[in-house]
Design a protein around this nucleic acid. Structure first.
Lengths: 337, 337
DNA sequence: TTGACACATGTAACCAGTTACATCAATGCT
DNA sequence: AGCATTGATGTAACTGGTTACATGTGTCAA
């Protein structure tokens, strides 16, 4: 009954005392068991078990100077696109024995800065952020801590830190080009909030600068199924002639599709519909959604690997461009007339 | 030019030396600025800025004995149901200044145990796991570390640690009852892998034990849209008479719906279809999906809060049952004949 | 003038590990 | 027998913060 009632967690010294060895020996049993005799090893192990000793992570970290934690700042988890991105990141981190802390920002720079600060306080060794528009607070933080940081969902070779992502302008342009090639000239664009969201802004800019022979009208809504649905409703009830709906995210398109169906508008016969993202669900909708595939999973993998290599081997990664790809399914067709 | 070229990160002592004060004073500037004269404070601050000093999280943790990190073990992030659960958890943790590490297990107990060990190594102060079936390794780990742990997605008041979740048997039974009340007698059940998944097993058991006047056939598939789709295909091509499809997850139902549509089978006229979960997308499908709502967001909030209170105030939470709820939409109708 | 007290600051012990180096015994080789 | 070498273990100095306690200075009242 050596178990002390003083409920302090046992530490190395306690174990050493209990086993009748020095702290160094206990430490060796933990980190280099082969350097210790079988006999003392078992004795120490017994003490460890009896005292329910669990080594302190903090004490280890202080010596190694490492926490083996990286952080990701994303707008939300409640959107398949970010969730699968993170899923990919996490899967790449595991082999490096790095762990991932997730912090959501709701696309709010202030929240982002706060949570970034907390991540730094925790001692993350690297950071993944979404997009390339961030508060000065965040920039200063990264600069002063010299923290490896990678921006994703956006490609910009000239950015202050490496970006791994795609060209949002191009993605939108690909979609629009597809619609114009089908003969659409009056297109309504449904997009999520522009405020604090450079991906959305870039996509809109890509549309405007594409120089294609179309009349575009823009309709902002929440980035959700409901948002897409109500935006489509607004468009329909406006009475303006439109032969195609271009949604800047698949969620919006799925929402819009619902409204179209409710109003008896056949897709693609009476209205073409496009998205951007290529969510798994887009293959299984009715009709299957024509969209522009954004390689989020690859992006997650690449970002995870790049950050891990940076953290582990001081290998500053190159910015890396991934390519959006037109996926023609059945929600688009030639414009009537 | 006091910046040393020796690229070691500056520490408290460096700052103290640079500012010509003691370490205690620097520490005070950081943690209790009001206890220091305005004048020395600015001097110290200048040194901090110049040396780009960032306090070591590990060193702080070693003193406070706290990491302010909790961990969550979930099967995958690439499924809306877990993603939104985590989104909710994270949102609750933020006000407590706790951070969340996410580890995915692919429903594999070995991976779960490994990742749990890593979480403990990192020094998490609490743990959230999915379901109530886990490897002994995990149990021993939790027992020896005395780590606050909460199991979710399952309610079992007698479990070894608190559960916050719903009765999966009941959820399935609710669904089945709805179908039988509509007169369905031949029902095909589509479910995800049973192996290592007690939620699925409980739902199946709930169906079998319901004692309702039906003939059930069971069809296992991947827990994905594609899985639901191919399972539905198998059912259709088997030629057996079935008037309703009961999917034990909404993803499966959405996949099955796709197949039904492809085969020109009208829902609900020729075939009723039900899911369990109530994903956001289920409201916007065609037809909108009748389902059993599982309160995942609430579950995330409650689990987050409960764990935070446990960690912060040693308040061991009660197990908490949340109630599944039948959501009748338009994918179910009376059985023909 | 002196004691009491507040206030700013410094000293050094502490947290819980790791690890360079020292010690010591046992073995091997000449 | 004597010396070098190997292997197991111990000692104590680190890591980078926090903090109890000590010190020193200045203000005020008796």
């Amino acid at each position: 009954m050596t178990t002390k009632m003083g409920r302090r967690r046992a530490n190395l010294r306690d174990v050493a005392a209990a086993a009748g060895v020095s702290v160094a020996t206990v430490s060796r049993v933990l980190n280099a068991p082969e350097a210790v005799t079988q006999e003392t090893r078992t004795r120490v192990q017994a003490a460890i078990d009896e005292l329910r000793f669990v080594p302190s992570a903090a004490a280890r970290a202080i010596n190694s100077g490492r926490t083996r934690i990286v952080g990701a700042l994303i707008p939300t988890l409640d959107n398949a696109i970010f969730a699968r991105f993170l899923d990919a990141v996490e899967s790449q981190l595991a082999p490096y024995r790095l762990s991932l802390i997730v912090a959501t920002t709701s696309d709010d720079p202030k929240q982002e800065a706060e949570k970034a600060q907390r991540l730094v306080d925790i001692g993350v060794e690297g950071l993944i952020v979404s997009g390339i528009t961030h508060s000065d607070v965040l920039y200063r933080l990264i600069e002063r801590t010299q923290l490896p940081a990678i921006a994703t969902s956006y490609f910009d070779a000239g950015y202050r830190f490496p970006t791994i992502g795609y060209d949002n302008r191009a993605a939108a342009e690909i979609a629009l080009r597809h619609l114009t090639e089908l003969g659409h000239r009056d297109i309504a664009v449904i997009h999520g909030p522009k405020h604090n969201n450079d991906r959305t802004r870039a996509r809109i800019a890509g549309l405007k600068d594409a120089g294609l022979p179309v009349r575009l009208s823009f309709h902002q809504s929440h980035l959700s199924l409901g948002g897409g649905s109500t935006a489509a409703n607004r468009i329909l009830s406006s009475g303006k002639h439109v032969s195609a709906l271009l949604c800047l995210s698949d969620v919006l398109a799925t929402g819009a599709l619902f409204t179209l169906r409710c109003n008896g508008i056949e897709v693609p016969r009476s209205m073409s519909l496009m998205g951007i993202d290529d969510l798994p669900a887009s293959t299984f909708s009715d009709p299957p959604l024509t969209t522009v595939r954004l390689p989020v999973r690859e992006m997650g993998c690449e970002a995870g690997k790049a950050l891990a290599d940076w953290v582990e081997q001081q290998q500053v990664p190159q910015s890396q461009e991934l390519w959006p790809e037109l996926i023609v399914r059945q929600s688009t067709a030639g414009a009537a007339g």
